[in-house]
């Protein structure tokens, strides 16, 4: 019986032998593009989630956000590498390029590519969900946390003939300087005539 499929695979093997260099270059090119895209991935994860947005959170939530981002990064990295692997394969690597060997290798490669693609898909979906979760955490959490945080306005030292007052600058105009002093936010109005100097300070 003449089994032409076996001959076709032998022909494929001879062809691969002749085109080895082209094949390797193509594969390298594919990996280069994939790895460049990975660099962008770092940007996506950490620009979306800048440091400022976690600074005001309670420690538990800060760690949660960090863990989500690390998880997201690991998953997206795995997914991206798997996708590159699926797209650029390695048929004919580490095997004899004779017809029969190639025939079984092609079947293995098809199965393997499908598996890798599934992995890539799952990792990317879960990874992106983790990024979204991390962002959602930073939207929801600081609203509650902001109350017991330090005031956001500039702190000033107001010098008057009777002493120095330190607090958050609320309002300053021709009539008076108003500062918020103490943790509870009591407002104190100092008439402009009493003010000798107004000095910005980092803390009271």
């Amino acid at each position: 019986m003449t089994d032409l499929t076996r001959k076709r695979f032998a022909q494929l093997g001879q062809q691969l032998q002749l085109e080895q260099l082209t094949a390797v270059r193509k594969q390298a090119e594919g990996w280069r593009n994939g790895l460049t895209a990975l660099t962008g991935l770092v940007g996506v994860v950490f620009v979306l989630k800048g440091r400022e947005s976690v600074a005001g959170m309670p420690a538990v939530w800060r760690w949660t956000t960090a863990a989500l981002l690390v998880l997201a990064f690991a998953l997206l990295l795995t997914g991206a590498l798997a996708a590159v692997r699926a797209a650029h394969g390695r048929l004919g690597q580490r095997m004899w390029l004779s017809g029969d060997r190639l025939m079984s290798a092609v079947l293995d490669e098809v199965e393997h590519t499908q598996d890798v693609l599934t992995t890539a898909r799952r990792c990317s979906v879960v990874g992106l969900s983790a990024v979204v979760a991390a962002i959602a955490v930073s939207w929801v959490v600081p609203a509650e946390a902001a109350k017991d945080e330090k005031p956001a306005g500039p702190q000033v030292l107001v010098s008057t003939p009777v002493g120095i007052t330190c607090g958050e600058l609320v309002l300053s105009n021709g009539d008076a300087v108003t500062v918020r002093t103490g943790g509870k936010g009591k407002l104190r109005r100092i008439p402009a005539g009493d003010v000798r100097s107004l000095t910005p300070t980092s803390r009271c």
Binding site: A10, L16, Q20, V24, R90, G92, R94, M95, W96, G99
Partner: peptide, 27 residues
């Protein structure tokens, strides 16, 4: 020939080993 990407598989940049012999027959 052995392999599209060269005959040797480095073990993490280490020494490359010689490919195992072809068994069976060659078409």
């Amino acid at each position: 020939a052995y392999g599209v990407l060269g005959p040797y598989k480095g073990r993490w940049l280490g020494r490359r080993s010689e490919p195992e012999p072809h068994s069976g027959s060659i078409l």
